[in-house]
Nucleic acid binder design. Structure first.
Length: 227
DNA sequence: ATGACGATTTACT
DNA sequence: GTAAATCGTCATA
């Protein structure tokens, strides 16, 4: 361990159903150590559960086992980083037992530490408007870019890695603020598309897509906007 | 070998 | 709201 003081989630935490792990990850801190030693930290505010061979939205649907999906068949607590849309990476935590290819996609963080570095990683030459904190990690590919999570971080053991791990909640999560919705971007998954497998902290303005109800409760004017 | 398709983000109308 | 960017993966042949 790079830091004797820091606790981290252990194998028992990850070795459960992804539907249990996903909500329990809300409020936990994802920690990333850069090659230069800089520590980046963000609190998880949005996750999605993928249920494995039966789940039409999962990469492991039907038991697909290829070089890409191989990490999903490892033990709980293994990272699974995949490349998509020709330009983005997304970060998952493998759950359950070995050979049960279930995982949780981490979709958004609230930045806590190393924000200057995150801004640097997320900046591009042709960006017009300045980046706000809420633009840094509010999406699965955004947070990978901000934390520099790449294929080099694929198939890592988050229980023993010196560069990537997750720490338990420092504060409890308000149960009423923890919402569940259908998953994002899986329209072709047919009957699996509407299933409530996305968890998010509705009080956070760092999620990828704020729920309508959260908009309504956080902005009293929204309720009258259409009148 | 080939073609269709993304667990997304960004800029623009 | 819509569309472009951009390429590895997977199924089919």
């Amino acid at each position: 361990m790079p830091d004797g003081q820091s606790q981290r989630l252990d194998h028992a935490f990850y070795a459960r159903a992804s539907t249990r792990v996903a909500p329990d990850l809300i409020g936990c801190d994802l920690v990333r150590i850069l090659p230069d030693g800089t520590r980046l930290r963000g609190t998880i505010v949005e996750t999605e559960a993928y249920l494995g061979v039966a789940d039409k939205a999962a990469h492991s649907f039907g038991g697909r086992r290829t070089p890409r999906t191989e990490p999903m068949y490892a033990k709980g607590g293994t990272s699974y980083v995949y490349f998509t849309y020709g330009m983005h990476y997304c970060f998952n935590v493998v759950c359950g037992k070995p050979d049960d290819p279930v995982a949780v996609l981490v979709r958004a963080l609230e930045p806590r530490e190393g924000i200057a570095k995150m801004i640097d990683h997320r900046s591009t030459s042709r960006r017009k408007t300045p980046l706000r904190d809420r633009d840094l990690c509010s999406g699965p590919a955004r947070l990978c870019q901000a934390l520099q999570i790449t294929p080099a971080e694929n198939a890592l053991d988050l229980i023993s890695s010196d560069v990537l791990w997750i720490e338990p909640r420092r504060r409890s999560v308000n149960k009423r603020a923890l919402m569940v919705t259908p998953r994002v971007g899986i329209q072709s998954a047919e009957e699996w598309a509407p299933r409530p497998l996305r968890w998010l902290l509705s009080t956070s303005d760092h999620v990828s897509r704020p729920p309508a109800s959260a908009i309504a409760t956080s902005n009293p004017l929204a309720a009258n906007a259409h009148a």
